[in-house]
């Protein structure tokens, strides 16, 4: 009996979304026509993109192992951006405006705009701008950024089921891309996209953030929801076929296992390498489950994942 293994064909495809415009070098993501990373049987016009995370202020909760490569530029977004792109090879960046949170400095929307401008000046890659978390302050900060940086094709993070109108409006008005977040729930992921499209947001300008559980802290939930989202998308569900973005670094470095020194837990091994492995072992399964953009924190984790992507997509554009 000889083997007859037919490639799997799907009715649907993932949307291609262009990140960055005007002064940005545009980056197109997704567009795959098969299960994630199944390059042996389906077409993938673009490779997964790798972002690094930078912050507006010194983030108090970053462990030393992940601060070290950013030494001297932590909380200085312009300089950090330059290092991330020039030295670490990020395809794009995520500026997390931690300091605008009312409890973490309460920086103003204008200060946020200045930070974003600083990054846009320092580098020409697309930029994800993450607010302080759902609520009035986030809406205020992100709409000001959206308005002041009109046309840059920024990726605004994020809108959710309960609070999407403000960001939907500025996304449409000022030519940006919007991240739709849902709490590891395929029905809510779909519902937010339906709400966004009813608010005139073109779903070709939307990314899904399914909410990442880090390794050991809910990774399996995210993994399976992403697989289900991708299956629905490939089956032809046009409300779920947006590219998927995963905030990996933040979740991986939150884990206790990434923070505890070796002398406290002798069976856990070297702390720095352990944290790095935590980030890699969170990122890699999510790539396999359908992530089109990974936001990482440690440049060495990016280098590792980059190597994987390079062998996987030797000829593919992007990156």
């Amino acid at each position: 009996m000889s083997l007859n293994l037919k490639p799997k064909k799907w009715a649907g495809a993932i949307r291609q979304v262009t990140l960055g415009a005007r002064t940005r070098r545009p980056l197109v993501v997704a567009g795959g026509r098969g299960l994630p990373m199944h390059t042996f049987e389906a077409e993938f016009p673009h490779r997964p993109a790798l972002a690094l995370e930078i912050t507006d202020v010194d983030p108090p909760r970053w462990p030393d192992a992940v601060r070290q490569p950013w030494d001297g530029v932590v909380g200085r977004p312009g300089e950090a951006a330059a290092r991330a792109v020039r030295d670490f090879g990020a395809d794009l960046l995520m500026l997390h405006l931690v300091g605008t949170h009312p409890d973490r400095g309460n920086r103003t929307a204008d200060e946020a705009v200045a930070d974003v401008r600083g990054v846009l000046k320092a580098v020409d890659v697309p930029l994800i701008v993450k607010g302080p978390g759902t609520g009035q302050k986030q809406n205020e900060v992100l709409s000001r950024v959206a308005e002041q940086c009109a046309g840059e094709g920024l990726v605004l993070h994020s809108a959710c089921q309960e609070d999407f109108r403000t960001l939907a409006a500025v996304t449409v008005a000022y030519g940006h891309v919007l991240v739709a977040e849902s709490p590891i729930d395929i029905n809510i992921a779909k519902q937010v996209n339906i709400l966004l499209s009813e608010s005139n947001v073109d779903l070709n300008r939307v990314l899904i953030d399914p909410l990442t559980g880090g390794l050991g802290y809910g990774l399996e939930y995210t993994y399976s929801v992403m697989e289900r989202v991708r299956l629905a998308a490939l089956g032809g569900d046009t409300m779920l076929n947006c590219p998927v973005i995963c905030l990996v670094g933040e979740e991986a470095w939150k884990a206790k296992e990434a923070k505890v020194p070796a002398d406290k837990e002798p069976l856990w091994g070297d702390q720095r390498a352990r944290g790095l492995h935590w980030e890699i072992a969170t990122a890699t399964p999510l790539l396999l489950a359908g992530a089109d953009i990974l936001v990482l924190r440690h440049p060495d984790a990016l280098a590792h994942v980059r190597r994987t992507i390079d062998v996987w997509f030797p000829q593919t554009a992007g990156g």
């Binding site: 390794l215 050991g216 939930y221 856990w268 352990r274 890699i280």
Partner: peptide, 19 residues
């Protein structure tokens, strides 16, 4: 090395948990 095994064991625990 323990720093390699701990994430692998944890990943296995995650993937093989009954959803």
């Amino acid at each position: 090395a323990s720093e390699t095994w701990l994430p692998l064991w944890t990943l296995r625990q995650n993937i093989y948990t009954d959803p």
